[in-house]
């Protein structure tokens, strides 16, 4: 099927060959689609489609294996770093990454995450932090900001009732086993480029056996936040970034 506008001579950007043709189930404005595309592009550029094993989370990204065309193991909620640990140790020449949301990584999977990082497993962890449980309909996450509303803190998160938002990425940077811990975003073209460089570095580190790399992507969930995509990006800049500042936490 030829498209009259997209012709080879005026094509400046194309879909990665590592992405499938499946229509993504993500809401318009969601950050997942962008991060999926970046991951696929990096795998393609590294020429590792046949050498990559991904570990899918429980959460909105549970169907990541419908979009990124590599082998996948689907994890129980939060257990992806344990699954990735064994995959990598038993297949040390492969590129192994997990893709996890904040509930998966920072609540139910806290132990698996911290211990995989502390052992320095040669895996890459891609961590989508949008401060809310998206798939189950907008409940409070461990990373939900104080005052931020969710269906289980409908008047806003209060520390005496709900505790404090967890900066788990800072904790992971403290573990001896991590070699690279960074916090990025994908809400502007330049931030997308930075995140892509971060994921490339994380994947390179894994293949070089340098230890665990963690790439947090501070993200929007405009459906869960009940905002338009544009409003969600602005809200993230004004509220999420002050508490979750972007940049490298560790690089060695």
């Amino acid at each position: 099927m030829s498209n009259p506008i997209i012709q080879p001579e005026n094509l400046v950007y194309d879909k990665s060959a590592v992405l499938t043709d499946n229509v993504m189930h993500y809401c318009p404005g969601c950050s997942h689609g962008t991060v999926h595309r970046i991951v696929a592009e990096v795998i393609e550029e590294m020429g590792l489609q046949d050498q990559t094993i991904g570990v899918a989370p429980v959460g909105c990204a549970v169907f990541i294996y419908n979009y990124i065309n590599v082998d996948f193991a689907e994890s129980a909620h939060g257990r992806a770093p344990a699954i990735a640990t064994a995959i990598k140790r038993l297949n040390p020449d492969k590129l192994v990454f997990t893709y996890q949301g904040d509930g998966d990584l920072a609540a139910i999977g806290t132990a698996e995450t911290i211990h995989a990082c502390n052992r320095g497993e040669n895996i890459a962890i891609i961590f989508i932090n949008n401060g809310i449980y998206g798939m189950t309909g907008g409940q409070m996450a461990p990373t939900t900001l104080l005052g931020m509303k969710s269906s289980t803190c409908p008047t806003g998160r209060e520390p005496h009732l709900n505790g404090y938002p967890l900066k788990i990425t800072d904790m992971l940077a403290l573990t001896e086993g991590t070699c690279y811990v960074t916090r990025q975003s994908v809400h502007t073209p330049s931030s997308v480029k930075k995140t892509k460089r971060a994921i490339r570095k994380a994947f390179d580190n894994s293949l070089q056996g340098k230890g665990t790399s963690v790439v947090e992507v501070v993200s929007t969930c405009n459906s869960g936040w009940k905002m338009t995509p544009v409003e969600a990006n602005r809200w993230m800049e004004e509220n999420m970034f002050p508490f979750y500042p972007l940049g490298d936490l560790k690089d060695r």
Partner: peptide, 26 residues
């Protein structure tokens, strides 16, 4: 053969899941 002490039984069974997912005898 790989031998690893996990952080919990929850982790160790999921490590077994991961190894088995790649066709290994775990």
């Amino acid at each position: 053969m790989v031998v690893l002490q996990a952080e919990s039984e929850v982790a160790s069974i999921n490590m077994v899941f991961g190894g088995a997912a790649t066709g290994k005898k775990v």
